[in-house]
Amino acid sequence: MDPSNARIVMDADEIARALRRIAGEVTERNRGAEALCLVGVRRGGVPLAYRLRVLLRELEGRDVPVGTVDINLYRDDLGVSRAAPVVGRSDIHFDLDGRVVLLVDDVLYTGRTVRAAIDALMDYGRPRAVQLCCLIDRGHRELPIAADYVGRVVATARDERVDVVLDSEDSSPDRAEVRSTGASKPGKEAGAL
């Protein structure tokens, strides 16, 4: 992958500020964090969910539970275009009944991942409400789904790919970047629902 054609759409400071703002919006809308829980969509949403937990603790002085959900068993394209994707574990160790679930993902695109994640949540219980948070909304929705909390709306082409890099192993700074893939190459935008 050629890093030179990547354009950074959010740098580390912008990501940190956006998450702080979102945490504030969440507590304002839910009048605190009492019934709240966070569920990160594997894998990009998970580190964001943990960051939001830290911010919510600073604002509200309480720890909200964090779970993770893997959407691969709920995909609508098994066997359509490629080998069965590697399934990961979902880990929701608390009761969802009556809670407000804040579903967290890094990039909102077609909306199919969110649809799958909501279906998965419902198999773990009956939340009072599900709210959606994403760091980047890149457009191109294929389902009637909208986020309740958005870090930044970014205009993209379909053959571009959006990556959110957090806590990278080579300790490069946090960032969200867009790069072109060449339309025929199945990159993240083809693989992502």
């Binding site: 098994l78 066997g79 275009s81 490629r82 080998a83 069965a84 994707p85």
Partner: peptide, 8 residues
């Protein structure tokens, strides 16, 4: 699951 993926 895995075989259904391969069949596709």
């Amino acid at each position: 699951y895995l075989l259904a993926g391969e069949a596709g």
